[in-house]
Design a protein around this nucleic acid. Structure first.
Length: 329
DNA sequence: AAAGGTAGCAACCGCGGAATG
DNA sequence: ACATTCCGCGGTTGCTACCTT
């Protein structure tokens, strides 16, 4: 098998990237797009393997990456998603705008996992270590997770098939607001018809809870293939279900500007919850949503000096996924 | 001040699977 | 149908900065 590897006969450079190498890669991709990663290094004048170039680009050089400390809200999102999806970093990253799967994985392994362990919670099962009960709930949650996993994978395939954008689309990353607003019709028409199926599934299977990861909620993960964005003025909720015309490829994502925020017809905080980092229940008008619990109890638990209420934590997770019946596999 | 330990993070590796011929 | 190429993912490694003794 012709595995992609870096052990070529020609000695290729490994290890940390230099500023010069970064500049070469960046300017080449900005000018030509990455195209085939395998052939890129030679064209760009780099003595690296294509895989190394791809990694450097996706995890570090891309202009649409947010770096720096993760917010408490992002931490909560990671923990909740990890409880449902496990170590599916790319799927988790799909729900965290501008964060890479590698960054999330590192953050989990170096901080969150330890923090949960310190709190007496098994970071794998998300169950309190001294309370192995709740097996029915665990099975239910696992079942939900399977559904979500399968759905994410389907969406990923769909995205790959439908939005095979030309490499030079990367050139638009720095000025998406203007480009997107000037070409919405054509792009919107490219939205996959199958999104309606997803929408229908969400509307029928989860009428009160849109479950996380509707196409419109998948916002600008730099590495995930699940990259759709909704137009800034058509924030979908259960009562305002998305349509194919609300969805367009990430490369045409309209970054929110102050003007956009001013024109929204709902509270800005709410909008940020919908887009910045998911607050599932709130975003979908879940009647079980208890903001006091989320914002105070979990946040306090995450800080570490709070006697964690594992029962509430568990119930909270279940509330997220079981507000409505799901079809059995 | 030096040595050892630890945390954080960038980068590498190997695998699975999709795409292509 | 099969072989090969390519890409993306998750696990792991290794380097560096910081902290502790």
């Amino acid at each position: 098998m012709g595995r992609e590897n870096c052990d070529s006969k020609v000695e290729l450079k490994k290890g940390p990237w230099t500023r010069d190498e970064d500049q070469k890669l960046l300017s080449y991709i900005q000018e030509h797009g990455h195209g085939s990663w395998r052939s890129l290094p030679a064209k760009a004048g780099l003595e690296r393997c294509g895989k190394s170039c791809r990694l450097r680009w996706t995890n570090y050089l891309r202009p649409d990456i947010k770096r720096g400390k993760l917010s408490t809200h992002e931490e909560k999102t990671i923990i909740r998603l990890h409880a449902l999806l496990g170590n599916r970093w790319s799927a988790i990253a799909a729900h965290l705008p501008k964060r890479t799967d590698n960054e999330i994985k590192n953050y989990w392994n170096t901080r969150l996992k330890k923090r949960l362990t310190r709190m007496g919670i098994d970071p794998v099962t998300h169950k309190p270590k001294n309370n192995p009960g709740g097996s029915a709930q665990a099975a239910n949650l696992s079942h939900m997770a399977q559904w979500e996993t399968a759905r994410l994978e389907a969406e990923a395939r769909l995205a790959r098939q439908t939005f095979k954008l030309p490499p030079n689309n990367l050139l638009h990353l720095h000025h998406r607001k203007t480009t997107a607003s000037s070409q919405p019709q054509q792009q919107q028409q490219q939205a996959p018809a199958c999104l309606d199926v997803l929408k229908a599934w969400q509307a029928t299977a989860a009428p009160n809870y849109c479950f996380f990861g509707s196409a419109a909620n998948l916002i600008e993960s730099p590495t995930s293939t699940l990259n759709f964005s909704c137009s800034s003025h058509a924030v979908p909720t259960v009562n305002n279900a998305i349509t194919a015309s609300d969805v367009m490829p990430t490369n045409n994502y309209v970054a929110l500007q102050q003007d956009d925020v001013n024109n929204l017809d709902f509270p800005v905080d709410y909008y940020y919850d919908m887009t910045g980092s998911l607050d599932f229940a709130a975003a979908n008008h879940n009647p079980n949503y208890n903001p006091e619990f989320y914002d105070d109890n979990i946040a306090a638990a995450l800080v570490g000096d709070f006697e964690y209420d594992s029962k509430n934590y568990w119930n909270d997770l279940l509330n997220l996924v079981s507000s409505s019946p799901m079809p059995m596999l």
